[in-house]
Simulated scan of single mutants.
Amino acid sequence: MKTVDEAELCFPQLLNTSCRKTMLSPSVSLVIHLTLSSISLLTVFSNLLVIISIYHFKRLHSPTNILLLSLAVSDCLVGFLISFQIVLIDGCWYLGDIMCAIYFILDYIITTSSIGTMVLISIDRYVAICYPLRYPSKVTTERVKMCVSLFWMCSILYHCVLLRDNLQHPGRYNSCSGECVVFLDYIGGIFDLLSSFICPVTVIIILYVRVFVVVVSQARAMQSHVAAVSLQGSVKITKSEMKAAITLGVVVVVFLICTCPYFCVSLIAEDAAVSASSATFILFYFNSTLNPLIYALFYPWFRKSVKLILTLQILKPESCDTIMM
């Protein structure tokens, strides 16, 4: 029969080196399991609907939707990463040091790709709203695909190099058996914070402030006959572009709200060791669950495509040519 101390250890057979479990009551543990499992399944399923919608229906192959597709891919992968947090409910990592390093590398890659996609979305809306005549020639589907692919490849290469020591020596920085941490040196941590968060977020905020100013001025012009007359010689933004800017603005704001706590904790941390068991991770991941809900709320084409997918109408010949807008 196990002693009380042994029951509190992640690995009872390693009395001297094992980490201690986070002791939770069975009811609390069950609620957390069910909540995280539900979030994980909802995140994967809802983002798969976004991916299938944009990939299948040709009328949705616009530059902006290609960016949403990239974001949905990263969000869908986040849904799988949430399953690792389910393993960590009792504070113990049972999957080994190599899997811990791989988990963190995937997390960093997906995170950076999401932020990179947000930057591209901000640039896309900035050009569409501030330079509408140049938008069709400057922002093409092929160019957007190239930029998205470049961001993903750079993110993979960058973080494999940044975290190479954790891959070469997995578990080196664990203080006990059953812990999952990765370590970045001070310079690497600062550079990663600047390149993965501070600089991209600064660009996003600056571009969207400019977009917001233009959208507000155009909206006021539409409501004012005097302003409308004075703006006769200027280029007006279409309602669809304004609506897209507002919708994607909501996506960006929600993204910042969900991600800022995680990066703020990283910024004020005394060392560069990052643990997998953190509440800020859950909030960060939850953003991936919210994005498809925002699309469903604001985009009629997404609601229509979901209906066609769930009723299996997409299996019909030539369904890819369905008019969605």
Rank of each mutant, 00 (worst) to 15 (best):
D165N: 14
S53Q: 06
H56V: 01
M242V: 04
K239M: 03
R220K: 13
A272Y: 10
N291A: 14
D75G: 07
G188E: 13
I105T: 15
T289I: 07
S288Y: 08
P292Q: 13
C147I: 01
W301S: 10
E142P: 00
I39K: 03
M1S: 06
L293R: 07
F255Q: 01
S240T: 08
V4Q: 11
E6S: 08
L14V: 00
V148C: 11
C260K: 08
R125F: 11
Y103A: 02
Y126G: 03
K239F: 11
S230G: 13
L69S: 03
F298Y: 15
L310S: 13
K239Y: 10
S149P: 03
I123W: 08
I54G: 03
K138R: 10
S46Q: 02
T322M: 05
Y103N: 02
N16T: 07
V209M: 15
A219Q: 08
G249R: 11
A227C: 05
V254W: 02
K21P: 08
I237P: 06
T35E: 03
V306W: 06
L95C: 05
Q223V: 01
Y94W: 07
L30I: 14
I257P: 05
V214P: 09
T238Y: 12
L162H: 07
V182M: 13
S149L: 03
N287G: 11
K239V: 00
V161W: 08
K138H: 13
C100V: 07
K2E: 14
S27Q: 12
P132A: 03
H56A: 00
I205S: 11
L312V: 13
Y135A: 05
S195E: 04
I102E: 01
V87L: 04
V251N: 15
S175C: 12
A273R: 09
L34H: 06
F197D: 03
K304R: 15
A269N: 08
P63T: 09
M222R: 12
S277D: 15
L312N: 14
R125S: 13
L308I: 14
F191G: 05
S70T: 06
W301Q: 04
P292R: 08
V119A: 04
L69W: 14
K239I: 01
T140V: 05
L14P: 02
V50F: 04
C260E: 00
Y55H: 07
S275F: 06
P12M: 06
Q223M: 12
P300Q: 11
H61N: 08
S319I: 05
D321W: 15
G188V: 03
I268N: 00
I237Y: 09
I52A: 06
Y158L: 06
V214E: 15
L67F: 05
Y173Q: 10
